[in-house]
């Protein structure tokens, strides 16, 4: 299988500061891949580079074998890339169902004339979109909320809605930026199940997350960033024991002391 997403020496610097520094990332199809690292390591910036909201200083982004480095975000979405944001950016004035319908934009083909004339083809497409949106809401457990204004949902449900909106068009790759932030343990466990189901339905997941239990539980691969550099790439089990990862999180001194005291200490 070819690599689904690949970044080659991807770099972004602002006035001498390297926010992302020559990162080579490989996300395999059918996997849940975690991107971890201390605050300010460049994880969200890397997401912005991958999704096309920010242009890199140097380097290449390959998605499904295509060089998408110069494509704007909306074209990448059309190719099957989807994402959520660190602080949820749902459309608060729309209903829950309308939010998911908006996420189905890559599947909307009715032209202006068909729309104005309300042709049978227009109705057929609209019905198919609504059916797909309802299925997606059912999958994340928000069916009962479909007709509520999205802004009235509690925090945890807004995050689920953002995921529903992103996965509705069945993207090839979903980027999740701190999906478990602000969730209680029960919600986090449900989220882990949801992420697994998304993967099993054919959407690979690249996620940024600080909840290490969650990351170790669901990830097939882990990449660790620090100061914009990729310092580790491998399995979750290997990441737990990698001295460079411990150092990044705890600092050199503490990591060395821990390593001396308990060789199997985990992050």
């Amino acid at each position: 299988m070819t690599t689904l997403l690949r970044t080659l020496a991807l770099t972004l610097h602002y006035a001498g500061l390297f926010a992302v520094d020559r990162v080579d990332l490989n996300v395999q199809p059918g996997s849940v891949h975690a991107l971890i690292g201390p605050n300010g390591a460049g994880k969200t910036t890397l997401f912005n580079l991958i999704s096309g909201l920010v242009a890199p200083t140097e380097g290449t982004v390959l998605f499904r074998g295509l060089d998408v480095t110069s494509l704007p975000a909306d074209r990448r979405t059309a190719l099957g890339l989807a994402r959520t944001f660190q602080t949820s950016r749902i459309f608060g004035a729309m209903t829950v169902l309308e939010n998911v319908l908006t996420g189905l934009q890559p599947r909307c083909f009715a032209g202006l004339i068909a729309t104005v004339l309300r042709t049978p083809a227009f109705y057929r497409e609209e019905r198919a979109l609504v059916a797909r949106a309802r299925d997606t809401l059912h999958m994340v457990g928000l069916s009962a909320r479909a007709d509520l204004p999205a802004a009235t949902l509690p925090h945890g449900e807004q995050r689920l809605l953002e995921i529903a909106r992103a996965i509705a068009p069945e993207p090839a790759l979903l980027l999740l930026d701190e999906p478990a932030a602000g969730m209680n343990p029960a919600e986090t466990a449900a989220l882990a199940n949801l992420v697994r189901r998304i993967r099993d339905l054919g959407t690979s997941v690249l996620l940024v997350e600080h909840d290490m239990g969650f990351v170790m539980d669901i990830s097939d691969a882990v990449t660790v960033l620090n100061f914009g550099r990729c310092i580790f790439q491998g399995t979750p089990a290997a990441a737990r024991q990698a001295p460079e990862v411990m150092e990044a999180y705890l600092g050199q001194k503490v990591a060395a002391r821990l390593a001396a005291r308990a060789p199997r200490m985990t992050v």
Binding site: D74, M94, Q105, V116
Partner: peptide
């Protein structure tokens, strides 16, 4: 005509742009 456009995918895209341009773009809206 504008009412028909408002109640369609085109109208949803327009509403999305009005609410949050970045999120709208990530939805695949040009």
């Amino acid at each position: 005509a504008l009412w028909a456009v408002g109640r369609s995918a085109i109208g949803r895209a327009m509403a999305a742009i009005r609410e949050d341009e970045t999120a709208a773009q990530v939805m695949g809206i040009n």
